[in-house]
Structure formats: C-alpha cells, structure tokens
C-alpha cells in the first residue's frame, strides 16, 4: 500500500520502523553500481557502518554508467579521449565527493534497508529474506 509522505516521515523516525512485508533487519542488500552516483547518502544513514564512502574510484564505472546520467556523460567524454582502458581505481581528492565508490560490507550489514530507502538514485535494493516474503504474501491472502 502506498504510504503518505507524512507516514513515511513518521516511519523514518521510529526506531526499527519498517513497512509491512519489509522486515527491519535481515534484508539482502543488492547494490546496482551502474546507477550509483556516489553521493554517500547510504553511508550517512547506515546504522552499522557497513556502507562507507571509499577513498578511491574505479574509472571503469564511468564507462558502464547509463547514458544521460551524470556519470554516463563523464564516461562518454572519457571514452572519446581514452587511449587505453582505465588502469584500476584512482585516489580521489578530499573535496571531490560524488565520484567515489561506495564500499558495502555485507559482513557487518544488518540488512535494515535504510540505504535502499534513502538512495536518491535507486541504486540500492533491499530484498526481504525469502521466507518472510512467503509468510507476508500468505498473510495478505488470508486477510
């Protein structure tokens, strides 16, 4: 069921608040790197510190980025100039904030999905654990 803006606001403030069918923890976090703009919002909202803004950037990500996106445009310009495929990740200066690779550590991740909810680019997906999906859909059918 779609939530109102206010409902979503409240949900955000409640500790452990989550949408029905989306467990508060235990989701599988899937990152779509080609959509990521590297803004670091996920790193800011992450309660466990599993998502971090890395200090380096993989140049190949620019070439994979979809056309029309900010990264894609940079990649298109780079492709014109390119003499050989990019050599590994490069160090990013401190004040360049958006061209960074976000590091997601699945070991520490709680699977709360805060990153997926906050991601402005829709690059993070929180997949609920399989059993819970089955239960949730079962419940929905009963009611």
């Amino acid at each position: 069921m779609p939530l109102t803006h206010r409902g979503r606001e409240i949900l955000r403030r409640v500790p452990g608040g989550h949408l029905r069918g989306t467990p508060a923890v235990g989701c599988e976090i899937v990152r779509h790197e080609e959509l990521c703009v590297g803004c670091g919002t996920c790193a800011r909202v992450c309660p466990s510190g599993a998502s971090r803004r890395g200090g380096s950037f993989d140049v190949a990500q620019l070439l994979d980025a979809p056309e029309g996106s900010r990264r894609g445009e940079l990649g298109a310009a780079l492709r014109v100039l390119m003499r050989h495929p990019p050599e590994g990740p490069i160090e990013v200066p401190e004040r360049v904030t958006v061209y960074r690779t976000i590091v997601h550590d699945a070991e520490i991740c709680l699977g709360c999905g805060a990153c997926a909810r906050s991601c402005p680019a829709g690059a993070v997906e929180a997949r609920p654990p399989r059993t819970d999906v089955a239960q949730a859909s079962g419940r929905d059918q009963d009611t």
Binding site: L62, H84, P86, I90, V92, E94, V96
Partner: peptide, 20 residues
Amino acid sequence: NFNAVDRVAFVRRLLESVGV
C-alpha cells in the same frame, strides 16, 4: 577555489588512468 583544485586533481588522475 579549493573545490576547483581538488576537481582539477581528480580530472588529472582520470586522464592519467586512460593514458592522456
């Protein structure tokens, strides 16, 4: 200008990584 300094440094690294 501090932002610009870092962005120029970033672009230089980008160029270097593709052989320019």
